[in-house]
Simulated scan of single mutants.
Amino acid sequence: MTALTFRTRDRIRFTTRSIIMIGLTAAMALPLYYVVVSTFKTQAEMAASPFGLPSTWRWENYATLLMTGSIWQSFLNTLVVTAVSVLFQVLVGSMAAYGMILRRSRLTAAIGAVMLIAFCIPMQATLIPLYQLEAQLGLVNSLTGLIIIYLGGAIFCYFLIVGYMRKLPSELLEAARIDGAGPFRIYGAIVLPLIRPILTTVIVFQTLGTWNDFVWPNLLLSSNEKRTIVLQVYNAMGQFTTDWPQFMTVTVIALVPVFIFYLFCQRWIVAGLVAGSVKG
């Protein structure tokens, strides 16, 4: 009877969890379903049946957008900004973390405290001074200026990486130093391969954040040829009227690359976080 009772309880718990998870999944998938299905409808069909399937699956919205050069230019701009920004964020963040681990002193502890305080400052508090600085340097309305702004994300990379890096065996680094390896040789040949899981996690987080960012591109970029893909979504809304199927289509096109990227890298995100939590 006891074993049977335990099995019954386990089945009830499993069934309850399954029902809750299915319900949460359906609630989260409903907006995505609405957006995707709306791209195949006309304006009238969206108003008449928001969640219904279209009577005829129309690809005109996708064809119209993909045939315009502005969407491809926006994709290229976003790709360049994201790739260059994330590369330098991870490089600067990992090198800063390595420097903190390599030379532990009161100075590095003070620098770490300053970076922690800076990390706690809300982004909204820095919008005006950073914009003024970029304007004085002539970097407004340029992808270079946007990339420089995103380099501030290196501090987030630093805090994720330094915690992982502290768990590296100090004997290994000391042995490499005794064998004559310099700090850059140790960093490139030993440290980077050992912290690959957390590097992958950081790259995924920063890529998603940079690709989907709206605030800084909207603040710094004004010309059409410099727009990012998120700005294309925003500009698809008219001042008085909006072609909602067209708007949904732009949204889907903007989401597809980052969605595929996340699905491809999802296992490395989990592996990096788990490895960082149990290592050492």
Rank of each mutant, 00 (worst) to 15 (best):
residue 3 A to H: 12
residue 9 R to N: 03
residue 14 F to P: 04
residue 15 T to I: 13
residue 15 T to W: 02
residue 16 T to S: 11
residue 18 S to T: 13
residue 23 G to Q: 06
residue 24 L to I: 12
residue 25 T to V: 01
residue 46 M to N: 14
residue 51 F to Q: 08
residue 54 P to G: 03
residue 56 T to I: 08
residue 61 N to V: 13
residue 68 T to V: 00
residue 72 W to C: 05
residue 72 W to R: 14
residue 74 S to V: 01
residue 90 V to P: 05
residue 104 R to W: 02
residue 106 R to A: 10
residue 108 T to N: 11
residue 109 A to D: 11
residue 116 L to E: 07
residue 145 G to S: 12
residue 147 I to P: 06
residue 153 G to Q: 12
residue 160 L to Y: 08
residue 163 G to I: 07
residue 163 G to T: 14
residue 164 Y to R: 08
residue 166 R to G: 04
residue 168 L to Y: 01
residue 175 A to L: 09
residue 175 A to R: 15
residue 175 A to E: 10
residue 179 D to T: 08
residue 184 F to M: 15
residue 185 R to F: 01
residue 185 R to H: 09
residue 188 G to F: 05
residue 194 L to A: 05
residue 202 V to P: 01
residue 209 G to E: 00
residue 209 G to Q: 03
residue 212 N to C: 02
residue 213 D to S: 09
residue 215 V to C: 02
residue 221 L to S: 07
residue 230 V to Q: 10
residue 232 Q to N: 06
residue 234 Y to W: 11
residue 242 T to M: 04
residue 242 T to F: 00
residue 243 D to H: 14
residue 244 W to L: 11
residue 244 W to Q: 11
residue 252 V to K: 11
residue 253 I to F: 01
residue 258 V to E: 02
residue 259 F to A: 12
residue 263 L to N: 12
residue 265 C to V: 05
residue 271 A to I: 03
residue 276 G to R: 12
residue 277 S to E: 05
